[in-house]
């Protein structure tokens, strides 16, 4: 009984949406710029972000507001899960090229 209770508690904390269909959104890095510079995603939904680094050089996707940080080697694609998030504007930047590589993720109600 105690073992079953522990399993239930553990299950509560582990992702409940991984197995469900997670919307996928994509961002490209080209010439040290993010494309699109503004991405709109749905509110209160966990989202899978694919960031394609089309440059030959590495970049680091970083956002204080999204609480995310990930190095993306040149010519590779990174997977980053974000959300569920409340509506709002969440800036992010490329830490290796912070002057040019900047973008925002706009979280809106009803966007699917």
């Amino acid at each position: 009984m105690r073992f079953r209770a522990c399993c239930w508690l553990l299950g509560m904390s582990v992702s409940t949406t991984t197995l469900a269909a997670t919307p996928v959104f994509e961002i490209d890095i080209r010439d040290h710029l993010f494309e699109p510079a503004e991405l709109v995603i749905p509110a209160d939904t966990k989202v899978k972000l694919l960031v394609h680094n089309l440059d030959a050089t590495p970049e680091e996707f970083e956002s204080y507001e999204l609480n995310r940080e990930k190095v993306i080697m040149g010519g590779t694609t990174a997977t980053i899960y974000i959300g569920p998030l409340p509506p709002g504007v969440y800036p992010y930047f490329g830490e290796f090229n912070p002057k040019t590589a900047q973008g925002i993720i706009r979280v809106q109600q009803g966007e699917r």
């Binding site: 582990v14 992702s15 997670t22 966990k46 204080y64 995310r68 997977t79 899960y81 569920p84 409340p86």
Partner: peptide, 20 residues
């Protein structure tokens, strides 16, 4: 915890506070 959320193993939640 942030690593586990970033890879989708744990769900992110709304921030409890913002001390920024």
């Amino acid at each position: 915890a942030r690593q586990l959320m970033q890879m989708g193993w744990l769900d992110s939640g709304r921030p409890i506070w913002d001390s920024g």
